[in-house]
Design a protein around this nucleic acid. Structure first.
Lengths: 257, 257
DNA sequence: AAGTGGTCTAGACCACCAT
DNA sequence: TGGTGGTCTAGACCACTTA
């Protein structure tokens, strides 16, 4: 069942993940069918199969070993049915909280236009350049768990929206959705820096915890078209309620060089 | 200057990074030469050029935009000459500390054979199965900054080494080097979970900080051949002295699905 | 020796963006 | 309209592992 206007490799990814769930194409102890076999079974060239497998490998879903075969990650075999989660890891805090089974809410603390000042460097603009600042708290079952501050250069925001953002801002929206909808900008790339910090008076107050509580601080710079910085974000997560999971692999591995 | 037995794509990656540094193939405002132009200039098929660019994109070094072009990451343009660091992100704590300009040292706290017990699940073995446990502290300019505990199933360790690990263990070695050298195992894939925690009495003592100091806790499971778990690690980083940097990008992005 | 994934080519066509 | 990156194919050969 081939759809038009959807890359074959994407459809192959979806098919492979689905059939991993149902066990159709996993021969035994996590081993996947060979590339040649998949190519034949789907009626698609091996190059395209390989492209799909590459993406799956990079997302940590499988590993491939020359001369042996392709193996399925325990993350997938532990949680069969997790295909959808695997594909859509959209970092929307509301979704993130709901996915964990909590009632999710968002409170807007502040929204306004200020000079970039100390974050000008991250956004590669002048300190006087105005940015739109958005400060929010996200709640899980009514308890605050994430504090989030985002800053977007004002000249990116579409003119019509600059006039009425106070009235029309949608609080639950992720910064990516905001950039897409209000700035016609996509985030292509993002630099994240993760640290452990203690809650100060203000954060403790906003997150309903005591000062000195451990927090995960995530500082982000998002890059849009032509590597132009489109937002700066500073987020704090309650340490005992949040964690980051990451699958790692050798990124650029140079054999012999 | 083409070498044999080294994949062309790897050589292309190296050439591209070098020539980005020297500015040869960056036309203006971070824009790279087109794929066709690179293909012609290197005398290599466009598919191979594309493979190299894919890896560079996934490592965050460039972004590509359909209909526009390929752009170089600020990480590279900010720090020209950083090519080598970009290629070798070997997670060896000693190197990591030295790279930041400190004197690096390592202290072995404990090494021994114990039953897997509570970490058996992570290693997919029985609780009674023996594992080799290695507990270390890493120091920067003589101040302890990282506490590291690693556990490797004993049956992976080569028999000859099981007898004399106490005498011959090399403390500065990363767990990856240990697995390679003493277990003939490679780590293909790794799951990392990052949290913020407070130092307890014992950790505070080992890290020369007061109880209640914020720490980054990184819990790791390394997977080797055929997705077999080869080590479990629990590391703690002094929060104010360590941070993780990560370049993100849409991992598996399904157009239209 | 057989089977696996890894590399590489040449060429075709499509989707997107600027002008 | 022309140029860019994105998709896809068919086929060849290489490198590695296991038996």
């Amino acid at each position: 069942m081939i759809h038009k206007n959807v890359p074959l490799a994407s459809q192959v990814i979806f098919e492979i993940l689905s059939q991993i769930d149902s066990g159709e194409i996993v021969t035994e102890n996590k081993e996947l069918l060979s590339e040649a076999e998949l190519s034949h079974r789907f009626g698609i060239s091996r190059s395209t199969i390989r492209e799909a497998l590459s993406k799956l490998e990079l997302s940590g879903a499988v590993i491939r070993q020359q001369g042996i075969g392709t193996y399925v990650s325990p993350v997938l075999t532990y949680y069969p049915g997790s295909v959808q989660n695997w594909l859509n890891d959209a970092p929307n805090f509301i979704d993130l909280i709901q996915r964990e089974g909590f009632q999710a809410d968002c409170t807007l603390l502040n929204i306004g236009i200020i000079p970039a000042n100390s974050i000008a460097g991250f956004l590669e603009i002048n300190p006087q350049t105005p940015v739109i600042a958005i400060e929010r708290v996200f709640l899980a079952n009514a308890a605050p768990v994430i504090h989030s501050a985002n800053f977007v250069p004002l000249d990116l925001v579409e003119p019509y929206y600059q006039e009425k953002f106070r009235a029309e801002y949608q609080c639950g929206q992720s910064i990516y959705e905001f950039l897409q909808q209000r700035c016609s900008s996509r985030v292509y790339n993002q630099k994240s820096e993760i640290r452990a910090v203690l809650a100060d008076e203000r954060l403790a107050n906003l997150l309903s915890c005591s000062p000195g509580t451990p927090l995960l601080q995530v500082e982000e710079i998002g890059y849009g078209s032509k590597m132009k910085p489109v937002f700066y974000g500073l987020n704090h997560f309650q340490g005992d309620k949040a964690s980051f999971v990451e699958m790692r692999h050798p990124t650029v591995w140079l054999r012999g060089v």
